[in-house]
Design a protein around this nucleic acid. Structure first.
Lengths: 223, 223
DNA sequence: CGGACAATTGGAACGTGTTCCTATTTTATC
DNA sequence: GATAAAATAGGAACACGTTCCAATTGTCCG
């Protein structure tokens, strides 16, 4: 439906206000929604606490009371920033993803063919996630469990993933993406997510996860 | 890893006993685990209640107390049959899936090319699921949220899906599946699941979901 | 049939996500 | 700097998944 990806750096459009606060399309308070430095800091502390707890004990260890305490914030405040545990975790995922994406943007990906480059990027990312299994479990499960109220945040992440892939697929002419390029990137993103879920739930080993992705990419990018 | 799919009719291997009851590889009590007709009937009532509630109000409406009451069973009994809400819903999914699979087995799928047949089957199935959005939401979300304790049940469903696809891909010589056939089927299954999740969470319209699948299948089965 | 053991019932109790309320602190406006 | 509005703190309360237990019912073996 979208032939051109929005740039990831775009400023979200303000579509409504909540309690006087302009709210971007996402339901969680995004950084741009936050006025004061203290608020930005609170938001950061909350996400830091979330990731620390997730990294240590996975999805179940991310308990709202624990997050609030660790972030030195009242429970009500936590809920003002993130309306649910899922919103919180998906927002954390988004931040992590943005981090990896900017890291990736600098380092050129080696590989002669498109398929090789995509595989390299995905394997690198996957390896990164597998180095912190609990965190990955927490973030992945939140992402997959999210219902329509988290639509906006999910969409952000999905777009980040797709744009990450298309950038690797067409490093030179990223502007001239065809519909098919984007479609392929989406399919690959889907497979990657499924593979990740399989790994997180213990259905697939790390090796199998890698293979699964490799097979899919080779099938999809054989030209 | 598995070059040949197990047949779906296989009797599960008994690997342990629980409270004197032999338990198949799944953690939920499967039909084969149940001795008396009364027990099979209880199990059926529970799954019926689950599906009725899910169909009416989705994931959130499947409340364990409500299921127990509707199935005319004590809460403790419900938990004896299905150790968690997720187990319950994934088992319901499994039953539904088996039903559609047997329905499908009879009706021949039309379409000249492999791709066409696969697309037809998936679209048909997808349409069926979309006709009961709440139920689909409940079952899909449970499936994606399941953690490793539901591994066995999840595996069953995954295999059912893969075998459904390979049967359509190779209607004649289903015995001579190549590694690649199975790999492709798995990838398609992954994409289908992701598309379904996207639809369930309101990210994709029904039309987009169909297109997404079509694109993936055409890319994967272009020979 | 009687007795042992498993299954079921009915319901209390606990944990964690979520909501809600009041008092206090911070921020914005003049 | 004073005051109104918004944000935060602190914590009680509620909902639902889950666990647990005592009493009852069902099942099977001698």
């Amino acid at each position: 439906m979208v032939s051109k990806l929005e740039r990831t750096g775009d400023v979200p459009i303000i579509i409504s206000t909540r309690q006087g606060v302009p709210v971007s399309s996402a339901n969680s308070l995004a950084v741009e929604d936050l006025g004061s430095a203290a608020q930005r800091d609170r938001r950061k502390r909350i996400l830091d606490a979330t990731i620390a707890l997730a990294s240590q004990g996975g999805f179940d260890a991310v308990q709202m009371r624990a997050v609030a305490e660790r972030a030195d914030v009242a429970l009500g405040t936590l809920y003002r920033y993130f309306p649910s545990k899922i919103h919180l975790l998906v927002s954390a995922l988004q931040r992590e993803f943005e981090r990896t994406e900017t890291l990736l943007r600098d380092k050129p990906v080696d590989g002669d063919t498109t398929a090789e480059r995509v595989i390299n990027v995905l394997k690198r990312t996957t390896r990164g996630m597998q180095s912190d299994p609990k965190l990955t479990e927490a973030l992945t499960r939140a992402f997959m469990f999210a219902d329509s109220s988290v639509q906006a945040e999910i969409h952000q992440v999905g777009m980040l993933l797709t744009s990450m892939l298309t950038r690797v697929m067409r490093p030179e002419a990223h502007d001239e993406l065809t519909e098919e390029d984007v479609a392929i990137a989406k399919v690959i993103g889907d497979v990657w997510l499924s593979a990740l879920v399989g790994w997180v739930t213990g259905r697939n080993s790390a090796a199998e996860t890698g293979q699964q992705i490799e097979v899919a990419v080779k099938l999809l990018l054989r030209d």
